[in-house]
Amino acid sequence: MTSKLTAQSLRKLSNGVSIPAIGFGVYQTPAGEALSIVSEALKAGYRLIDSAAIYGNEEEAGEGIAKFLKANPSVHRSEVYYTTKIWNDDHGYEATKAAIQKSLQKVEKSIGYIDLILVHSPISDKEKRLGTWKALQEAVALGSVKSIGVSNYGVKHLEELLAWDGLVNKPVINQIELHPWLPRKDITSFAAKHDILIEAYSPLTQGKKINDPELVQVSAELSKNAGKTISPAQTLIRWSLEQGFIPLPKTATVSRIPENLDVFGWEFTDEARKTLDKDSYEVLTWDPTVYEDPK
């Protein structure tokens, strides 16, 4: 499968909607820079932009998409996939309804609708989480939001949602921190059984593992095999693709945008797969997947 992937490849969600096989994240991208960085990412070939209410750059991300589409009329809005997320403070039916409207208002003028809304994390309680899902399902029924999913959900949080008697729309995505040092095989195998695609955030480990000796060695071996330089960052993004994940690399450096997308036309060797197949649990960001509701 991975040998045939290109920057234009699409993955099919359980609701029949297609999503790009790789995305561009705007976490920690200042609002004042998001418009230009999103436009540059789309210019380089990305077609999936991942934002969130808590990032404070939804409006600018939408404007960046609109700017690119205006300059490139051959690319249709339907070809660009925009994601945002409901923050923890807005869990619960009424609060989520209001949050959805806020997120819609920030992008309706620029891009018209939201392709995907995720529950940013399970941090609240069961009643609020399910109330949030009820509000999201209603948004899908109205057509202003095309698909819904979750982020930072552990197996128990996914089980809770899938067992809910009010479930109409299954989560199509679970977005979690993933990289060779945090493969989360319990969550990814559960998701595979239930036809939930996995998005990998912080696939570049926020730079914390870029100089890892094993990663550097694998990158050198892949470079030799591919006949061109493969950087550790490219190796990590390709690792996510090899696992069947949708990686969401981010960078504030414009020159690195095309480099992070140059992860096609070559693939891992068996030795590279073996070296980076780690049985570890090294969280480099935060870990709501283990969240327990207050007693």
Rank of each mutant, 00 (worst) to 15 (best):
T2L: 14
S3V: 09
T6P: 12
T6R: 02
A7S: 13
A7D: 13
K12V: 13
V17T: 10
S18C: 14
I19Y: 00
P20E: 01
A21R: 01
F24I: 02
Y27V: 11
Q28I: 10
P30L: 04
S36L: 13
I37Q: 00
A44R: 05
L48Q: 10
E59F: 05
E59R: 12
E60C: 13
L69D: 14
N72M: 12
P73L: 07
T83I: 08
G92K: 03
Q101V: 15
K102Q: 14
L104P: 11
Q105I: 10
K106V: 08
K109G: 03
S110K: 00
S110P: 00
I111K: 03
D115M: 01
D115Y: 05
P122H: 02
K126S: 13
E127G: 06
R129W: 12
A139W: 00
V145P: 09
K146D: 13
I148L: 06
S151I: 04
N152Q: 07
G154Q: 02
E160T: 08
L162Q: 02
L162C: 07
W164P: 00
D165K: 00
G166V: 06
I173M: 11
Q175T: 10
I176C: 05
L178H: 08
W181Q: 07
L182I: 08
L182A: 12
T188Y: 12
F190K: 01
A191M: 11
K193G: 11
I196W: 02
I196A: 11
A200E: 05
Q206G: 06
G207S: 04
Q217G: 09
L222M: 09
N225A: 14
T229V: 06
I230Q: 01
W239N: 06
L241D: 04
L241C: 07
P249F: 15
K250W: 13
V254L: 13
S255R: 08
P258G: 12
N260M: 04
V263A: 13
F264W: 10
G265L: 08
A272K: 04
K274D: 12
K274Y: 06
T275W: 00
L276H: 04
L276Q: 07
D279W: 11
Y281N: 15
D287T: 15
V290T: 14
V290D: 14
E292V: 15
E292H: 12
D293E: 14
P294D: 13
